[in-house]
Write a protein that binds this DNA or RNA. Structure first.
Lengths: 233, 233
DNA sequence: CATAATGTACGAACTGGTGAGTTAGTTCTA
DNA sequence: TAGAACTAACTCACCAGTTCGTACATTATG
């Protein structure tokens, strides 16, 4: 299992060794990252209480003692996992560029990109669900994650402002509500996939339905922003 | 703590005793129900692995032994909790009557009623989230819950058929997708309440916002069913 | 009095966490 | 530059408290 990510804030930032370099026996960067990788999988798979520190350690090339050495405890490890996951998502969001599109196309595109992003990061959605069961008690204690939602809202605000200015949006709505509308659809598709499948015999996240639901969320948002208040024919 | 619910499928359905009757020392019906009530709260609050059998027993007037006597184990207890919760929700859904309304009003009303129902049963939504973390493994083993989604879909199908017939719905969409659209919004409002609050400083389930979001989901559905495909002004 | 219902006490396995000692790799010094 | 000195990184063995589950005794009730 190759390790290639690097998000550690060490005091001395060691440059990534070239592939030809001899494998170090001691590599704090690698150890930390590997623990986080495994922990993220285990927490997403089994929940906070379901995941076992011993098992996480066993799936690592290091020992349980190292988890306590680097993170302090199970709870702090979970917070670290959440922090890294949210930070990565934020980076992906920041890469979204729809400013060059007309407002209607921009908001549709944003919805579709959000949908794809959620479907591609199902473990992250699971972690968020788990954190909600715990009433966001870990997220709340993290300082790293303060004001993490702002950039996404700013983007939507820009689109809404432009759309109202040029008359393409007729519905008066605020950015957080639009974000919530898009998120709810995308999150539900992943988070409630299993009970929905059981009750309605339809896999919301199945590869064969992705295109359909991607289009649907785009149309939903556009219909809402252009349709409410317009007289029905 | 008064007990008043009664959903047990005992072999002999004992009629509810009048309030004046002497309190029985042994009352399997009451014991079973009380265990289910407490277990539902604890599982919803802490998740499957977070909830403790000893703690559930302690919050009951009976002992842990009775949990094993009546349900067999922690896992079967959780399944019983899910079964009762889903069955109650089904009853509430069956009580919804919008057949007398015009299609547009009917679908809007259904969305609004669904929203209220979700907000009033947040513990149920939590149980569903928890069950999804476990990939619906308990729900799948339950025979009681087979085809539980059918009535809800049938109702939507009737409304959609009527709306297409009289021309008030222009968008071609199937009933399960409409259900999913409504559910995603309502479920998200409750299930992701805590992380959303933390990131965006807005309580989606706050009493002061319920009217706003109830209206919003109604308008969303109506806009989607009437708006997609119509030329934008 | 037969039996369904209930309480008591206990145990085996697990689980998060830690004390204490060891080693790889770096840096300082003569 | 040899090697001493130092420290971060690491291993091992273990513990104390917990947690699900059960054997066995007891009592209410029809």
């Amino acid at each position: 299992m190759p390790l290639n990510r690097n998000g550690h804030t060490g005091s001395l930032m060691t440059a990534a060794r070239p592939a030809s370099a001899p494998e170090r026996q001691r590599d704090p960067e690698r150890t930390r990252t590997e623990i986080l990788d495994v922990a993220a999988r285990e927490f997403a798979r089994l929940g906070y209480d379901g995941a076992r520190v011993d098992e996480i350690a066993a799936l690592t090339r290091t020992t349980k003692r190292m988890i306590y050495y680097y993170f302090g405890g199970k709870e702090q490890l979970f917070v670290a996992v959440l922090e890294r996951a949210y930070t990565e998502v934020r980076k992906a969001e920041a890469a979204i560029d729809v400013d060059h599109l007309a407002p209607l196309d921009a908001i549709r595109r944003l919805a579709e990109l959000t949908y794809d992003h959620h479907l591609d990061h199902q473990d992250f959605i699971r972690l968020v669900s788990i954190e909600n069961v715990h009433e966001a008690q870990h997220l709340r204690t993290s300082e790293v994650l303060a004001n993490l939602g702002a950039p996404a809202i700013d983007l939507i605000t820009r689109i809404l402002t432009a759309g109202k200015a040029d008359g393409s949006f007729t519905t008066d709505v605020d950015a957080i509500d639009v974000h919530m509308m898009i998120s709810s659809f995308c999150v539900f598709s992943v988070a409630n996939r299993h009970t929905f499948q059981t009750l309605f015999d339809r896999d919301l996240a199945g590869a064969d339905r992705r295109a359909h639901y991607r289009t649907m969320i785009g149309e939903m948002v556009v219909a809402y922003l252009t349709g409410v208040g317009r007289p029905v024919v």
